[in-house]
Simulated scan of single mutants.
Amino acid sequence: MPGTPYFSPRLILGAAAMFGMLLALGIHILGQRFGLDLGDLWGTPNGIIPATAAIAWWLIAAVAFVGGYVTASLLFSAASGHLPRRLQHALIAGGLLLLIAAGQAASGPSPVPTLHGFYNGIVALMLGAAMAFAGAHFALARH
């Protein structure tokens, strides 16, 4: 009987950080459809930051961190053979459905100006990458 394959922790860390970052970007795109604009943190004319900007910031950070943590834990379990095959397929399908919904939301007309939306996307991507990496790192440190 063959043993379980070895996967480098760096490979698991990179994959988990990438998936957490994509989840954060998907949540950012979906959040824009509901009026959660991350760019309201900067450039408000009266100096008051709206609550929707703070909600968007924390939502993106939380989804990226939890996504990186859960993905790293699941990848570690899958690599060691402790995760059932059906659960693997269900988790993959759930992640793909979120990314499909984000793609559908991004294909319509944007509620924010183009350059403003581009900067918001870059900030959401960097925030998502940092938080997903931190979550994946904590998950791998636990194992």
Rank of each mutant, 00 (worst) to 15 (best):
L83H: 02
A93C: 04
L30W: 03
L59V: 07
G14E: 02
L38C: 04
A53M: 06
P111V: 15
R86S: 09
A17M: 15
D37E: 12
N46F: 11
L59M: 10
L22D: 01
Y69A: 08
T114Y: 10
D40I: 05
G94W: 05
L41E: 02
I92Y: 06
G108D: 11
G26C: 08
L98N: 02
H28S: 15
W42V: 15
G43M: 10
G43C: 11
G68C: 05
G94T: 11
W58I: 12
R10L: 14
A78H: 06
L23W: 01
L99G: 03
L22S: 06
L59R: 06
L96Q: 07
F76H: 08
F65S: 02
A78M: 11
F34P: 03
I100K: 06
L75W: 03
L38N: 01
A24W: 00
A56G: 04
I27C: 06
G68N: 04
A101Y: 02
T52V: 08
S8A: 11
W57R: 08
P50W: 01
G47W: 05
W57M: 13
P45V: 08
S110G: 13
G81W: 07
L41C: 05
P9S: 13
L38M: 09
R33E: 09
S77A: 15
F34Y: 10
L98T: 05
D40V: 04
G39H: 01
A24K: 00
A101I: 03
G26W: 01
W58S: 06
S73I: 03
P109Q: 15
W57L: 15
S8D: 14
R10N: 10
I29C: 04
A90Y: 12
A24R: 01
S77C: 07
F7T: 08
S77F: 05
I100D: 07
R85D: 04
P45R: 13
W57A: 14
Y69M: 13
H82G: 06
L87T: 14
G14T: 05
A105G: 09
G31V: 07
G67E: 00
A105I: 06
G108E: 14
